[in-house]
Design a protein around this nucleic acid. Structure first.
Lengths: 194, 194
DNA sequence: TCGGATAGATGGATCGGGTCTAACAATACT
DNA sequence: AGTATTGTTAGACCCGATCCATCTATCCGA
């Protein structure tokens, strides 16, 4: 029997196993009070193995979204000088399209119980900034001034992150995050104080 | 002779002494390569003392702006339900009014030499988010929907942070950051793609 | 069947940021 | 002199993260 897999020792644990153990512990004791050693102990692997699957403790929560954000950044870069609002918004919708409930959604929904308010604020800020920078770069390539591009990028990135948060808090699964985003992007196009 | 000072042992070091030592080292070796122990050693105090003056290593860079952001948050809260765009923008201008070159401006200007690109991006994101949240709360109190308020807060916060960055990179001191912000806030009011 | 070659798992050392505490030192006031 | 007050300090400790050498399990070809 060949071809079942590639050479080498088969994986003894998986991202899912570790993520499950982590989320359980986050719910039981809180995020801060859960060490990486606790997670690997429950998952039945060594502490060292954790970092073969996740680049950091918080990566357990964010890896799903990060992959989509990275993809979106590439797509935005590929737009070149012809980037317009519609094209950018299409990419942004892709980020949340078919976004299934995952550790991040769970964390956003149970942020209080997990004691995640601070951590989530910080990490969300980083992702917001990353996305905002990507949009800003696209806008600058399209000819906008740097500050104008930054403001526009921040507004659109906020639409994405805020939509995700609202969707997650409402109990991810009942609605489609993409629909929430559509409303948010409308708000960007008509950004008046009222 | 009384009244020369209050009781207790006089301070042996000051924030300024530590900040200077830190900035020197950041320029010489880079931010990452400089440990807190390095800073205190150059300043001639113990490592323990560092945290009597700064809450973290990065606080050396950010404490000046953080104080202004905290003040702005309070002012925004005090606006109550009567917050409108003009009142909010006035508060935002106050953040950058008379903002003198400080460790943060130095860091932004020498971000490459200090190897600060990552760290600065992360920390800027946190401050952006903090300010955006304050503006968003003000907007929600004024009756806007949460997502609309988030988008608007992110856009205005981006105007502030982006202005600060541009001002610092241009060589803080030559111009007034408040002037840069005025241009940026105009961009928020007219947030169309190009 | 044996022996690489490959991929994964592991323990342990190391580092740096940050917290905490008990002891110590210097000043003002009485 | 004595005491309260304030600041400094050493040291232990925790935790996230990196690194490396070693060990283990599987596949595949000779």
């Amino acid at each position: 029997m060949s071809g079942t897999g590639r050479a080498g020792r088969p994986k003894a644990s998986s991202r899912e196993t570790l993520a499950e153990a982590a989320c359980e512990l986050f719910l039981e004791r809180g995020y801060e009070a859960t060490s990486v050693a606790d997670i690997t102990q429950r998952a039945g692997v060594s502490r060292s193995s954790f970092f073969n699957y996740f680049s950091s403790k918080s990566d357990v929560l964010w890896s799903g979204l990060d992959a989509r954000l990275a993809q979106a950044s590439e797509q935005l870069s590929a737009l070149g000088t012809s980037a317009d609002a519609a094209a950018v918004d299409a990419v942004l919708r892709g980020i949340l399209a078919d976004f299934a409930p995952d550790p991040l959604a769970l964390a956003m929904r149970n942020r209080a119980a997990m004691g995640l308010d601070d951590e989530l604020a910080r990490d969300s800020a980083v992702r917001h900034a990353r996305l905002a920078a990507a949009v800003s770069h696209a806008a600058m390539r399209a000819g906008l001034t740097p500050i104008r591009a930054d403001v526009l990028g921040a507004a659109r990135a906020a639409a994405v992150m805020s939509s995700l948060r609202v969707w997650a808090e409402q109990g991810a699964g009942s609605s489609d995050p993409e629909d929430v985003l559509s409303v948010a992007l409308d708000a960007v196009d008509d950004l008046r104080w009222r």
